[in-house]
Design a protein around this nucleic acid. Structure first.
Lengths: 345, 345
DNA sequence: AGCCTAATCCAAAACGTTTCGGATGTCAAA
DNA sequence: TTTGACATCCGAAACGTTTTGGATTAGGCT
């Protein structure tokens, strides 16, 4: 049987395309009997509306876009799965699909945005990992295109919807915790400076240190990308310093895992010889050996919330709250046990 | 400035829509000077082709679909992230996008397939977690729609493209390994029987046991879904039996993590009092306490390969190999240390 | 002069849907 | 008998693109 379209239904039932369309659309200007006849025929032919044609005509694709940020291996990070899951669940509930794109060899990240946004493929987009002077945000603002961001930026010319975790407070809390445990040489492995959250977290670290009157040894502050490997490499460097840190805070849990491996590789014990802290609280964090002290971000929930707001923006209805700062939670586990008192050297 | 379309470009340059289209399309029946003029104007207006219109006309959406299977919390499983990552990377390279959908309250899984497949939203789909008498596969076969599956099925009326891991061999290898370590009471927590891989793996387990002449205590074979919680719950039940197992093999790593927690909760030591095995080798498996003995599936790679084949199917070109059975690798870690000899009771 | 070729351009149809603005017929009220 | 009002239906345009099948012109050849 050929493909079922409004035309084939019209022919089969003897009504016009208009009437068929309106019958299926549930309009009240079509006789109930007619509607039933049309519905029956539609069922018989296995009719499904062509979504491209509908999107073209309605200028709505019922799709929201998510472009995976480049730089770093990004995806395997469980963080993404959880976030995507939150976005997807909320979107599905509203009858929206998710278009997941990636930059490739011949298409840069911003090109992908242009393609799917200007190309009418999506009705709105969700951004993650906001960056300093974020060109994606500039582009979307300029086009007045609906979007919502996980993370703040320094582009504050206009108001837009974002949800961010208070990294400053979170990192400060962890730093204080480590200081309480008697640490003074606390290293901080910060994420790339182009990522906005890098700033805030570093700020929290510095504030807490200053608050306690501890001078920061700048050799203990190193930048590295968000992968496990980078975490391990940098940790090894730190631990080989003449005056190694007694505690290392990593920019995310993945890096923290690398740090823990490095510590072990140096023949030291995590949590006893060297305290380790992470950020995110990915599922694995709890099951590490020892458990990873980290800062929990409600990633799934943030994904949901962002999507909910994005959908409101798309509908054009007023958005409840435009931007939110979420208080993260410090999760204490074995990786930040106090150093053994007998370890003085 | 209004939205740029072929029409606006045509008006601005004085050429016809046809010529503009062909100029941008790189056809050789348009004068080079004209093409330059048109390109310049396109750039000036920031033209991006409307992808819905193009898809409508070409009957190609340059998109491949991925519907997240329901049943189980599925997504947070790191497995998905990795798979999606493989699919996405390969798709992006070919200029394809990914449409990720989920079943919702008012739309069952098969409805979603109908919608995006018959609705022309995607050019092909990737399935995962093949099921017994899989209705998704029946539907796609019936419509002659391009698809590729992670996992075999029992629907073998027609040939179609799949890649599967030899779960029988994998599970048998692990069972043998445990038997070598002196275990006899080996429990198996099998995934839901509707999932195809559940069969093969169980087969491997039974074969290896038979091979060693060990009778299976059927109370040690329990079914449970693929979540951490289910793993823990069932493990507790097993461990409370009058004759508890000395080894537990879980259907995936997530469940194995639950099992490990259960073991600890019972005051026993993982790997010493009770051996634990998983399946998948998710990234966290390596960092657990102790490391999880498991069977590695090259998930990312399988995602890539499936996508490559699907793209060939879509292009209509001949597919190199239609179906493949991948040999999994047994990864030995601390969770399957031999039970202490002094533990006889 | 007539014919052919090559280069360059374009009108119109088509993809499948939605929607605007009537058209038609019926029936009750004036 | 006219006039609305209502219920039901439909033609045609529009969304933005690609593609088919020429049309037009200029130049080279017989």
């Amino acid at each position: 049987m050929a493909k079922a379209t409004l035309k084939t239904l019209a022919r089969a039932t003897g009504y016009s395309i208009t009437t068929v369309s309106r019958a299926l659309g549930g309009f009240d200007d079509v006789n109930e009997e007619t509607r039933q006849a049309i519905l029956a025929e539609a069922y018989r032919q296995g009719y499904e509306p062509n979504l491209q044609a509908r999107a073209l005509q309605k200028k709505r694709s019922q799709t929201i876009g998510l472009v995976l940020p480049t730089g770093g291996p990004s995806f395997p990070d469980p963080f993404f799965g959880e976030f995507l899951s939150g976005v997807g669940s909320e979107a599905a509930q509203a009858g929206f699909d998710l278009l997941v794109s990636t930059a490739s060899a011949d298409l840069t990240e911003i090109d992908v945005y242009r393609r799917i946004v200007a190309g009418g493929r999506v009705d709105g987009v969700i951004l993650m990992r906001s960056r300093v002077d974020d060109e994606r945000i500039r582009y979307l603002l300029e086009r007045h295109f609906p979007f919502a961001v996980f993370g703040r930026t320094d582009i504050m010319d206009e108001a837009y919807s974002y949800i961010d975790v208070d990294g400053r407070a979170g990192q400060a809390a962890m730093t204080r915790h480590l200081i309480d445990r008697g640490h003074e040489r606390i290293a901080y492995m910060r994420p790339p400076a182009t990522l906005m959250f890098s700033r805030f977290r570093q700020q929290g670290y510095r504030e807490a240190m200053a608050e306690a009157g501890i001078a920061i040894d700048e050799r203990l502050v190193v930048e590295c990308d968000l992968t496990e490997n980078a975490g391990k490499r940098q940790a090894l460097r730190l631990l080989k310093l003449k005056q190694p840190p007694t505690a290392i805070m990593a920019g995310n849990d993945l890096m923290a895992i690398g740090v823990m491996n490095a510590v072990r590789e140096m023949g030291l014990r995590v949590g006893e010889d060297v305290a380790v802290g992470g950020f995110d609280d990915i599922p694995a964090a709890e099951h590490l050996n020892p458990g990873l002290t980290t800062i929990r971000q409600p990633i799934f929930h943030i994904g949901q919330q962002l999507t909910e707001r994005l959908l409101q923006l798309i509908e054009g209805s007023s958005v409840g709250e435009l931007s939110t700062l979420v208080e993260p939670e410090l999760i204490l586990r074995g990786s930040s046990n106090p150093p053994q008192p007998d370890r003085q050297e």
